[in-house]
Nucleic acid binder design. Sequence first.
DNA 1: ACCTGAACACCGTTCAAGT
DNA 2: ACCTGAACACCGTTCAAGT
Lengths: 243, 243
Amino acid sequence: MTSPPGTRSTEQPHPRPALTRDRVLDAAIAFMDEHGVQHLTMRRLGESLEVEAMALYRYVNGREDLLEGVVDRLVGTLVTDPDDAPLGPADGWQAYLQWLAHAVRQLATAHPSIFPLIATRHPAAPWLRPPLRSLQVVEHFLQALISRGFSEAHAAHTYRVFTSFLLGHLLLESAARGASTAPVEEPLDEGDADLPTGDEQLDLSDHPTVLALRPLLSVDKADAEFEQALEALLDRLDLELSQ
Amino acid sequence: MTSPPGTRSTEQPHPRPALTRDRVLDAAIAFMDEHGVQHLTMRRLGESLEVEAMALYRYVNGREDLLEGVVDRLVGTLVTDPDDAPLGPADGWQAYLQWLAHAVRQLATAHPSIFPLIATRHPAAPWLRPPLRSLQVVEHFLQALISRGFSEAHAAHTYRVFTSFLLGHLLLESAARGASTAPVEEPLDEGDADLPTGDEQLDLSDHPTVLALRPLLSVDKADAEFEQALEALLDRLDLELSQ
DNA sequence: ACCTGAACACCGTTCAAGT
DNA sequence: ACCTGAACACCGTTCAAGT
């Protein structure tokens, strides 16, 4: 608490909290949320923690391990959030899948520029499918379904179908969100820079149908379509159960 | 054709074909198929073409443009393959979607380590959704559906639903494939290297359900599940049409 | 016209050295 | 125990210079 003897009384400027793995991971998440994955650098992350990059290697096993840690931490929040019942709502498997789907979607929405990382980093095992790629979460998922009457085979099958669904919908949502949120991505100003074309410098003259439907294609129905597709999926799973 | 005067008659060792954008893109595709995306480097790509890296900048507007070119080229093959009818099979929209789904799946299977690139690179416009992220392909898609009786709104909606479906299923498939095919990814040998655990050095002791279901989770039903989910999707779209 | 050498700024990572 | 400086190999990219 007090200064060690022999130190000048002026070390207030940076009462920097102790470095720790959790603090490093948190800083990495904050950095990526603000600047995007591709700009996260060991050196810049160190800078954001007021430390040289080399100091990070005490807490993180290189850049790959750092990214893996970020993914694990974020996905892990799905089953450790304090305000959730141990196995989710008690109302049956459909309520459980609804609850989990929305939790994952909230995660994707909160970190649109990190979600692609969750979606595409090679999982530790091929059966650990993104975006539910944490052992804890998979354990949670399988127990939840089995405790609600699923056979083991059915639970495994549902895991596969459900992850495919989540990945497709949420990756496209966060790509759209990330595109509009991203800081600039790549200036790159190439060729003749007309660029007052509103949204993008795409040449649509050879693509009349796209041109005509552009307003329809741009409509953001992400919310409604997610709910609709989720309902359809649950209906399908229900049918398969009773077969 | 003949040597310019004054040249030694020994310039046979490398009758290297002229460098060209297409040759650069082809080399990049071949390189990534063999070594994975993360090892593609301007310098190594140059090496594979027996040229210094700087020479590539004549044909490619930097690394980002190179990757974009690769994606466009691969996705473009979907609608330019010689053995396909102009708008796919003439048998109705379900046959068209079946045909396209399998074409995209074949693409993902042929280039499992490039597909994540197709899936996650920021599209030029937010409504250009992976994996159907080429103007040509979207034009093709919309014309095909409209010419088969879809309204414009329905065609646009189907585009969104269909891309979500393809992305989720194929990205997970190629992640699984890529994991088993990948050259090594990252040695990283961290901690105590027990590693004779067969597939992975995961500690499953705290996750009894995963442990018990691992055989079931590892079963490869990718083919059947893709077909089944595609059928379900077509059924759903059919229902929506008649509403 | 097309490629190369040299140079620059920036990476990830290791390791001996400081405190 | 924890952080830093210096160093190494490797990036992407520019540009003047060679042929």
